[in-house]
Amino acid sequence: MMSIKNYVNNLSDEDLKRIYKKMLMIRKCEEHLGEATKNGAFPGAVHLYIGQEAIAVPLCDQLNDSDWISSTHRGHGHFIAKGGDVKKMMAEIYGKSTGICGGKGGSMHVADFKKGIIGANGVVAGGMGLAVGAALASKMDGNGAVSIIFFGDGAANQGVLMEAMNICSLWNLPMIFMCENNQYSEFTHTSEVTSGKIVDRAEPFGIPKYEVDGNNAVDVWQAAYQAVQRGRNDEGPSFIEAHTYRQRGHVEFEYTFLSRTYRDQSEVELWKTNDKDPILRLESYFIEHSKYSGDDIEKIQKEVQDEVDDAVKFAIESPEPEISSAMDHMIER
């Protein structure tokens, strides 16, 4: 296991502020989505990232538009972290013409190729090949760009992961396997469907592995730093397993169709406490280790909430897609 305790780069006050603000942006957007879906404010289902913000943000904080990310059905967080436009994401989830995909993709397919966001993905491990292909392109371009596949503990059991690790190691591709182990594969505890430790799966392929507390933004930043530098320096792929917890359901509204519960509410509540929740943890670290105070935090919270409110307003007020657009963007005939 690579040590992440040798901090290679200390985070400045401004770094922490930027990361905190973006994590909060994800949280506030999704709190809105979790509420709004109850009233049927938008079509379709949402899979929320709440509780996992300390993974996407510290990693994407180190990326440029020329770097690629490919993500999961729980993809709003990755989209925002990589610099995706919050208004356009919100409008997409509301199915509007102003959405980043014109209302044709929705929650599970938010993407912005100009920002290097290959997109969320409705197929578990479906983004794996896409990220490897982008890593291959970056390698051939020789531009130092890296490619990240965000995937969950559930996706770690898809065979394509093995194919991806093999080829990335073989070709020394600038790829980062970022496994977000949120402990649940849909509605089943991952320990019931997974043998061994996920991070150990990197070992036989000779891929350096990092295991981090995924609810500690600073630790994730440090591990990501090493992985990103390896990619930029043409040193090949890295594998990070970030341990976290899915505070929300696999999908919102799940108890309207599930026949029984699959976890205790006390377990969920535990992960929302000051000691566990990634945003609360960063908040106290931030106050303790930077020049910023609780008042500054409140100011940031207000700014973020205003921006989310604006995005929601934009989404609600935006027009529906033109019917004719349903036939656009297939192959030309």
Partner: peptide, 21 residues
């Protein structure tokens, strides 16, 4: 030359094409 891995091969084409190849 690729390993025998059609699953990743077909997906890689999408990623590489999206990235300009």
């Amino acid at each position: 030359d690729t390993p025998i891995c059609e699953n990743i091969m077909t997906g890689m084409a999408v990623g590489a094409a999206a990235a300009g190849y």
